[in-house]
Design a protein around this nucleic acid. Sequence first.
DNA 1: ATTCCGATTGCGACCAGTTGCGACTACCGC
DNA 2: GCGGTAGTCGCAACTGGTCGCAATCGGAAT
Lengths: 150, 150
Amino acid sequence: MPLPQTEAPGRLQAHFAERGIRMTQQRRAILSVMETASKHLDASQILRKAQRLDASVDRSTVYRTLRLLKRHGLIDELDLMHINGEGHYYERKLGRDHIHMACLRCGKIAEFVSDGFEKLKQQVEKDCRFRVLISRLEIGGYCASCRGSQ
Amino acid sequence: MPLPQTEAPGRLQAHFAERGIRMTQQRRAILSVMETASKHLDASQILRKAQRLDASVDRSTVYRTLRLLKRHGLIDELDLMHINGEGHYYERKLGRDHIHMACLRCGKIAEFVSDGFEKLKQQVEKDCRFRVLISRLEIGGYCASCRGSQ
DNA sequence: ATTCCGATTGCGACCAGTTGCGACTACCGC
DNA sequence: GCGGTAGTCGCAACTGGTCGCAATCGGAAT
């Protein structure tokens, strides 16, 4: 179920300004790719799209900017259970955390928002005396339509 | 074929035999490293230890064997929130799934077994009509001792 | 508009993990 | 034990991601 969201799109650049992070041509290109992306992108897709806006963007700048966004909690990084090789996927962080479910047969990715997940995180905070900042729950298995055919 | 486990340690090799998976010198070395490991190892540590038992073991054989173990549900693969670079860590799968908590300050890894986690997976099975085979929940934040110093 | 300094960039070299391929070997049936 | 074959291995080449460094740029102060 593609996702319930609360918050206007397209404000990544504003976040940068508010936090006094320097804005460059290259970052502008990358942010605008992330802002307008409709689905999970991997690093090489982000690079290609960003280079269409600013041809000078380098691979390593993409990775550095992604890391920056990650550190500021503005995007989430996903493995999607390494369905296709080693790569990672990135998505804008909007609204509440959600679980990612990857179908091992058809490769489809579904998302799921659950109160149980929030409760579980609260339990960890309490029982383990651990301050939760980032969390990632990924599940691999078979989706409803693939489940029929063993 | 995914499998629940409650089980004595050190029987990785037996599992291979039972499932008719071919046993080789190299695999024996790698399995024995995994069986005797006391904590999360990364691929290069596994390689080094395995080479002490059989000098011919190659990097790619380690990765291939790890993937094999993963597919058979005998080990878990962790990112530990990419605390140190990109690498992955591997651990023998024993008993119930557990949550990994990585402290972003001191790097310590804690584990936590929770009924809430099991319930959450059941909820996904039911609400999303999704067959759960593998699951991984990783949390990044501050552990009890690092929490004091902001 | 000009200066200036730290932050950022591109580049090339590197580490982590995967793949294709020819050579090798475990193990089944004889 | 012996041979044949599918499964596995080591190697070398590749993709994904990181790092160190010199050159460059953003933007605050002037």
